[in-house]
Amino acid sequence: MREIVAVDGVTFSVQPGEVVGFLGPNGAGKSTTMKMITGFLSPTSGSAKVAGFDVQTQTREAQRELGYLPEGAPAYPDMTPESFLAFCADARGMKGEAKKKAIEKAVSRTNLQGVLRQSVETLSKGFKRRVGLAQAIMHEPRVLIMDEPTDGLDPNQKHEVRALIREMAREGGSEKGKAIVLSTHILEEVDAVCSRVVMIAKGKLVADCSPAELLAKSRYHNAVTVTVRTPAGARVREDLMGLAGVKNVEIAEDQTREGAATSWTAVPHEADLGAALAPKILELCKQRGWNVDAIRMETGRLDDVFREMTVG
């Protein structure tokens, strides 16, 4: 059998209260890394510590502190959410009143009340995912690992799951909050919930920073986009290029119809030049008599950074 190096030398740490977005293209090794953190797979070398416990040598201790939502939220199809959660509680050694309370809390947080006695195989994707989440959070783990928690959910369900994640990270102040790692390839998720981003590509770490820092890596960071209505024959590109500090100009919405608004993005040579660029562009438009519909500074485009960092 051929050996496949799925993950190679990826190192990062997560503090309580942090929500780390684990980014990377499909097949980058996100799931494999998560499987190693949770003790399902053993790494050839290296180690993972969960709440101070080494996953390989103190597996049981580490797993007690861990909540894990595997990819696709697997659950026993013949069981009902009620019996499934009871099984997970039993397996975690919960008993009596504590078990009942833990199940009740997890059920109410994930809004499972309506489907408790329906078998898992008959549940919709959204409910199935919530069953998986309930299982992962019921024992109040200090570390929560979620593999694509919102994949395949509709926008409302995504919103709910994200709200729940944010709430869990904050709980009990930043000191006592959970350390959360979620993998995703949906970039809007990073903006929506993550306080930090760890990006891997082809099994290697390519970024570990805040979402803002990641955005700053975009070539569109501090670029200026202006939407103007120009008369026929206006040489917008050339004029914008003529401004000092402009590296290149891209047209975002290519509408050639006369009088229609077109959006142009002027990318500065260096990000710090961007702030000075906006007044100059406004000045230019005034001179030429173009009607400015909108002007804004770009913070950067995540999908652009993502592509740049993970391709090639």
Binding site: K35, T38, G39, F40, R60, E61, Q63, R64, L66, Y68, P70, E71, G72, P74, A75, Y76, P77, C88, A91, R92, G93, Q135
Partner: peptide, 14 residues
């Protein structure tokens, strides 16, 4: 096949 193995073996069960 159903992937529940991942769940079962990441619960704190020997």
């Amino acid at each position: 096949r159903t992937g529940t193995m991942e769940l079962l073996l990441t619960l704190p069960i020997a």
